[in-house]
């Protein structure tokens, strides 16, 4: 895979892959990051995968700019084969509509669909996590059906509850924290995308897939109780491509 480097100051480097954003590129970036995990190279502290690049943070005391690029080129060179044969799909139980999804009806009307059809189209697909950013645990997802795309709200809400599932343009996403926001909120998941008290505070990472599944309000409350007790088991499965 062709790679170009840009220094981000003295302690980070941007590895740019100069390819159109695609599922294959996201897989390659995921593989690139996995290599960094396995290599545990001295001086590399962390990295941030994005749509067509990875920012790698390192210690200039241990690695010069030239040395870090020499470490990264061979890793990129191995990435060409789309080796990925299975994908991880995580289920996101979601209540659609009513107070949980105040914009569902508007979105349905604007797209000349029934709310049932919107839910059907939203739960049908697997969404690929291209990147996590903006807020702790916020997934940038691709793969939304264009028939349920919708511009952002004209005036953003002061506060959107954590777990809210929204649509903005042709993207869908989940708010991990209570925060202001301008996405059309169609539902809410009881899952905690970010829980600082847990050993593993996050449910997923770049390269995983999410699938939404419609649940009732009762099921929402049941899952919420299970999460509080620590007995809830996240549905995570491996599927072949």
């Amino acid at each position: 895979m062709k790679i170009t480097f840009y220094p981000l100051g003295e302690a980070a480097v941007k590895c740019c892959f100069h390819e159109d954003i695609s599922t294959a590129l996201t897989y390659n970036i995921q593989a690139f990051c996995k290599k960094l995990v396995h290599q545990k190279h001295v001086g590399i502290s962390e990295w941030v995968p994005a749509y067509d690049s990875v920012a790698v943070y390192y210690d200039p005391w241990k690695l010069s700019y030239e040395e870090i690029t020499n470490v990264l080129v061979p890793i990129a060179n191995e990435m060409d084969a789309h080796e990925k044969k299975t994908k991880t799909v995580i289920t996101i139980p979601t209540v659609y509509g009513s107070d949980y999804g105040p914009d569902l009806e508007n979105l349905a009307a604007a797209n000349k669909l029934s709310t049932k059809k919107v839910i059907n189209l939203h739960t049908k697909r697997h969404y690929l996590i291209n990147m996590i950013g903006f807020l702790p645990g916020f997934p940038y997802l691709s793969g939304l059906d264009e028939r349920i795309a919708m511009p952002r709200l004209e005036s953003p809400r002061q506060s959107v509850p954590a777990g809210s599932v929204g649509i903005a343009e042709s993207q869908t996403g989940i708010y991990p924290l209570d925060s202001p926001g301008g996405w059309n909120i169609i539902g809410r998941t009881p899952l905690k995308l970010f829980d600082a008290e847990k050993e593993e505070p996050f449910l997923f990472e770049q390269g995983d897939y999410l699938q939404f599944t419609a649940i009732s309000e009762d099921e929402y409350k049941q899952i919420q109780r299970e999460i509080e007790k620590g007995t809830y088991k996240l549905e995570r499965r491996e599927e072949s491509e």
Binding site: W47, V48, S53, A55
Partner: peptide, 10 residues
């Protein structure tokens, strides 16, 4: 630009 990782001091 296409979103990317933002360093300290960027």
């Amino acid at each position: 630009v296409i979103s990317d990782g933002v360093p300290l001091g960027g």
